[in-house]
């Protein structure tokens, strides 16, 4: 059925308005990255400054270990994404499908880990990291990021599983699957949108974090991108050009990840499977 024109117009009007709102501040960041002389502010609305230059971008690759940071960040984020998705998809399944002792309490407890102000946890966290010898290790960072991303991912996956009819798994079990096989062959493929969101979220958690990274990573060659970028910021004498250019570049992989994942956010996976 074709939509009435006024609905189509309404859709595009809303979308266009928000696209403008979304990208304008980012265009400002682009503008900063094009300005010579580390000027954070400008006095007009021009996006491309009169004296624009790509020097900041060039400097990132020639004078700064940008590629090294990029590699580090990609490695950490990929590892966190994989573990995050693996752990969240299984735990979420347990919380959605089984009724077991401590289920509700554990779910709530998982939420509670997000409730303590993170800034207060930093000091003891560092003590922990140092005592366990995790300073300057990828493992330390990975565990922390995974733990940070998991509460949301577990809850999110649980929510998605809840929308998948239980009879599908029952059919699979009668077809000879163990619970594990039913999960793997039937439930997981249907939870793809949830997995995509979980993956995206895990990736973003690892990709943009710098406070804990600054505690764990004490060697410049182990820096992740955000940590490297934060280094361009010094109190009262920041290298805004580099800072902005790097921030723009750092968003590109996110966009790429989103692009490649978003085709799995496809319509109606469970349509036609059951008749409610």
């Amino acid at each position: 059925m074709r939509e009435p024109l006024r609905i189509t117009i309404l859709r595009h009007a809303v979308l266009l308005a928000f696209v403008a709102i979304s990208i304008y501040p980012v265009l400002n960041v682009v503008s900063i990255s094009l300005r010579p002389g580390d000027r954070l502010r400008s006095t007009d609305l021009a996006i491309i400054p009169a004296d624009w230059t790509l020097a900041s971008y060039a400097a990132l690759f020639t004078e700064q270990p940008f590629l090294r940071w990029l590699g580090n960040s990609l490695a950490v984020s990929a590892a966190v994404t994989v573990t995050g998705v693996a752990l969240a998809s299984t735990a979420g399944y347990a919380f959605s499908r089984f009724r077991f002792i401590g289920r509700r309490a554990t779910m709530l407890a998982i939420l509670t880990t997000q409730m303590f102000p993170a800034t207060m946890l930093l000091l003891p966290l560092y003590v922990l990291i140092a005592r366990l010898g995790l300073v300057d290790t990828w493992l330390g960072l990975m565990i922390f990021y995974t733990a940070t991303a998991l509460p949301f991912c577990v809850w999110q996956m649980k929510g998605f599983y809840d929308t998948i009819p239980a009879s599908l798994e029952e059919a699979a079990r009668i077809d000879g699957c163990t619970r594990g096989q039913a999960f793997w062959y039937v439930v997981l493929p249907l939870a793809t949108p949830g997995l995509v969101i979980t993956a995206l979220f895990s990736f973003m958690t690892a990709w943009s974090e710098y406070i804990v990274a600054a505690q764990v990573m004490q060697r410049e060659e182990m820096f992740t991108l955000p940590l490297g970028i934060k280094g361009f910021q010094a109190s009262l004498s920041s290298q805004w050009g580099l800072y902005a250019a790097a921030s723009i570049l750092v968003s590109l992989p996110v966009v790429a990840v989103f692009l490649s994942l978003s085709r799995f956010l496809v319509n109606g996976l469970t349509v036609g499977s059951v008749k409610e």
Binding site: V19, S22, I23, V26, S247, S251, F258
Partner: peptide, 10 residues
């Protein structure tokens, strides 16, 4: 894609 930009840029 354009709408997730605020999330993507640090």
């Amino acid at each position: 894609l354009l709408l997730i930009i605020p999330w993507a840029v640090p």
